[in-house]
């Protein structure tokens, strides 16, 4: 189910502005890869190119290659909509659909695409996805209630359940815990540990401890000066990155010394 991502020579532009320059990396299946780096260094932008979500922004374009196993997702005959069913995404701010119940939110991927599904199939998918997101016990008695009525941490887990319900092979998470309290954060980190059994997970985070706790590999992005494109400085095993980084820049960032 989980797939490998191979990126080579990727440049990302917004109009004439080059936001990310020459990134090449391999993201292993059934592992958690963390992207760290200061704000504006292009890590979120780069993350969004992995499921072509950057195309939602006007004028955004990409040069280079992103392989999902053997498929180039930027190939001429590849439909971005299909890419997104394979590569799901969880956002910084929990964004359940306000017009839908908890139940409908979970199966939104199928419902919005008008997939035919029997009642029992739908029930099973909802229960399985909510259990997978460690939310089932908390909401099983109020599945018909609006998703927007849950707490922030529950909403974020609802969004994870919604993302996994379309059965993607990769899950991208863009600072999923930055708006949550420590207990909700712990719940999500535990969940990430379980999810990596089945998915390739990429997580952007500003929290270095979180990167150290959840990830197997870490990539550090930085930009040489404001207005310059962001670059991948170093990528390696998380343990090694946090104890013996190869680049001086990485060490400065991780230890809190800059420049």
């Amino acid at each position: 189910m989980a797939k490998r991502i191979d990126v080579s020579g990727l440049n990302v532009y917004y109009g004439d502005f080059k936001a990310v320059e020459d990134v090449s990396m391999t993201i292993e299946p059934r592992s958690v890869t963390a992207f760290i780096g200061s704000s504006g260094c292009g890590k979120s932008t780069f993350l969004r190119t992995l499921n072509r979500m950057h195309e939602v922004t006007q004028g955004a374009r990409v040069e280079g290659k992103v392989l999902l196993d053997d498929l180039d997702i930027y190939g001429a005959d590849v439909d971005p909509v299909m890419v997104r069913t394979e590569v799901g995404m969880v956002f910084q701010k929990a964004n359940p659909f306000p017009t839908m119940s908890i139940y409908d939110n979970v199966i939104a991927g199928a419902r919005l695409n008008s997939k035919r599904m029997s009642k029992s199939e739908a029930d099973d998918l909802v229960e399985q996805s909510l259990r997978g997101a460690n939310l089932w016990e908390e909401v099983k008695d109020r599945l018909g209630k609006p998703g927007a009525g849950l707490s922030g941490g529950q909403q974020q887990r609802l969004c994870i359940a919604r993302a996994t319900a379309v059965k993607p092979s990769v899950l991208l998470m863009d600072e999923p815990c930055s708006a949550l309290d420590p207990i909700s954060t712990l719940a999500i980190e535990d969940l990430i540990h379980q999810l990596k059994e089945n998915y390739t997970i990429v997580i952007v985070t500003h929290n270095m401890q979180q990167a150290a706790r959840v990830s197997d590999r870490t990539a550090f992005f930085n930009l040489s000066a404001p207005g310059k494109p962001g670059k991948l400085i170093e990528m390696g095993e998380t343990n090694q990155m946090f104890t013996r980084p190869e680049q001086k820049e990485t060490e400065n960032y991780i230890t809190g010394r800059f420049g």
């Binding site: 909509v81 997104r84 069913t85 799901g88 359940p96 991927g109």
Partner: peptide, 17 residues
């Protein structure tokens, strides 16, 4: 909110839907 559109795109839902 733009968030909601992105949430929908990220589920593999086409723009018109």
């Amino acid at each position: 909110p733009q968030d909601l559109r992105e949430a929908s795109y990220a589920l593999g839902v086409p723009k018109w839907r």
